[in-house]
Design a protein around this nucleic acid. Structure first.
Lengths: 115, 115
DNA sequence: TGGGCTGTCAACCGATTGGTTAAATGCAGG
DNA sequence: CCTGCATTTAACCAATCGGTTGACAGCCCA
């Protein structure tokens, strides 16, 4: 698991339980028990998910008495967004092609280039 | 691997070989041999990576004689970007806090809220 | 028809993943 | 100090992953 940081982030996000945990952490810090509550899953399983998220840098953890609250580290998500940004122009182009195709459909005929 | 589409996309992106393949496909369609050339890896291995990308919807494949060219499907990446977009406000907020922190450091003192 | 490409399929392998249960750790309060 | 709560660690398990090699299939061309 000592792979590159970006791979670690994508791998961490590739699990719906972990994405749900991130969504929950948008509302603020939470203890392991609070985070585990919605899931039909043992506590150690949630603890492992938290470790994956932490090693990917997507969350950080505090220490308050016997609690180890987790909080979101959103800058790590920005790293993922920055990688994706390189591809924006490609899906923009795809969307433009789809858009003009639908536009021509709505005119009841094709764009004149048809047979 | 019959998980949800978003998980499949993240999982597909969590491998540097597959991300390199996507980057190569930005320059246009490519055959399996062309895609495999930069990697120290057997052809079947690359073929498997392509299958992962295809099942995630990130690429599609054609048939031209004995070639099965792969091409980028950028709208699938847009799906990932849309998920990330929900978190933009959190990293924007983080960045603002970091930004004002650095600003105050540069003034040679804190922002007056210090003890 | 038979080579020689291109690419995939099948079987196998070791490592990793996502989960379990049981035991251990750390801390707070009576 | 002992109990109780919150959490992690350890050991284990089945399934998946990322790679290999070897055999197979589709297509062009002599």
């Amino acid at each position: 698991m000592a792979t590159d940081p970006l791979s670690a982030k994508f791998a961490a996000l590739a699990d719906p339980t972990r994405r749900a945990i991130l969504a929950r952490l948008c509302e603020g810090e939470a203890s392991v028990n609070e985070l585990a509550e919605p899931f039909d899953m043992s506590l150690p399983a949630v603890s492992k998910h938290l470790k994956v998220l932490e090693r990917a840098g997507l969350i950080s953890r505090g220490r308050e008495a016997q609690w180890r609250p987790a909080r979101l580290e959103p800058m790590a998500l920005k790293g993922v967004a920055d990688w994706l940004e390189h591809y924006r122009r490609y899906w923009d182009a795809s969307f433009d092609r789809l858009d003009s195709y639908l536009r021509n459909l709505q005119k009841g005929k094709d764009d004149g280039r048809g047979h």
